Amino acid sequence: MSIDELREYGLEAMNDREIQQFLSSQKVGVLGLPDADEPYLLPLSFGYDGEERLYFTYLLGSSSRKGTMSEETDTASFLVYKVDTMYNWQSVLLTGALTTVPEAEWDELEDTMSEVWRPDLIETASLSADVELYEFRIREQTGVKHQGLPPGFKAGDDSR
C-alpha cells in the first residue's frame, strides 16, 4: 500500500515544523551509506542544529568501513523513528551529504553536541581511539506519523 492509501487508516504526513520538533527531541537513528551490493546501515547518536544539519561522532579504527564509505559517498540517508505503540509512532527519513568537520570547528558545535546520547562503552573507547565529527547536511526530508487508533477501530474492540 502507498502512503496515500494508508491515510484512510490514520497515517499523516509531517510538515517541516513537525519534523524539526521531532528531530530536536530524538537522539538516535540509523545512517544508510550506499554500497555496491547492499546498503551499509549504522545505528548512530546525533546532534541536531534545529534547522538543516545533523552531527555524528565517529570512532575510527585503523581500517574503518564507515569512515571510508562516508568519505566516498555523495549522498547518504538517515532514518529516525520512535514507536510508542502500534498505533502511535513517528518516522522521519532524511537524505543529504556527509562531510568531515575540521577539528578547529568542534568547539563551535559544543552546544549542539552536548546532549548527544552515547553508550558508556563508546565514551570510554573514545579516549583511546581516533575520533572524527561528521556533518550531515539535510537536502530532503519526509516524515510520517500515526497517532491514535485507525478510523472505525474502538478501544477494547478485539473483533478485528
Rank of each mutant, 00 (worst) to 15 (best):
Pro102Met: 04
Glu132Asn: 09
Asp84Phe: 05
Thr73Met: 15
Arg160Val: 15
Thr99Ser: 07
Thr112Val: 01
Phe46Leu: 04
Gln147Cys: 12
Pro43Asp: 11
Asp4Ile: 13
Leu93Tyr: 08
Gly67Cys: 07
Pro34Lys: 06
Ala97Met: 10
Leu41Asp: 14
Asp37Met: 07
Gly47Glu: 09
Ser64Ala: 11
Thr99Gln: 03
Ser91Met: 07
Ser2Asp: 10
Glu103Asp: 09
Glu105Ile: 00
Leu94Gly: 02
Glu132Leu: 01
Lys66Met: 10
Val131Asp: 08
Arg65Thr: 11
Ala125Thr: 13
Leu59Met: 06
Pro151Asp: 00
Ser24Tyr: 02
Leu149Val: 14
Leu11Trp: 13
Ile138Leu: 10
Thr142Asn: 13
Tyr48Lys: 04
Gln147Arg: 11
Glu140Ile: 12
Glu12Trp: 00
Glu72His: 11
Glu115Ala: 09
Thr68Leu: 05
Glu71Thr: 07
Pro102Phe: 03
Gly50Ser: 04
Asp130Cys: 11
Glu123Asn: 11
Glu123Thr: 10
Gln90Pro: 00
Leu149Met: 07
Ser64Met: 10
Met1Asn: 06
Thr99Tyr: 02
Pro150Gly: 08
Leu109Gly: 02
Tyr48Gln: 05
Ser126Trp: 15
Val30Pro: 06
Lys154Cys: 11
Arg118Pro: 14
Asn88Glu: 12
Ser24Met: 01
Leu98Ala: 00
Ser126Tyr: 10
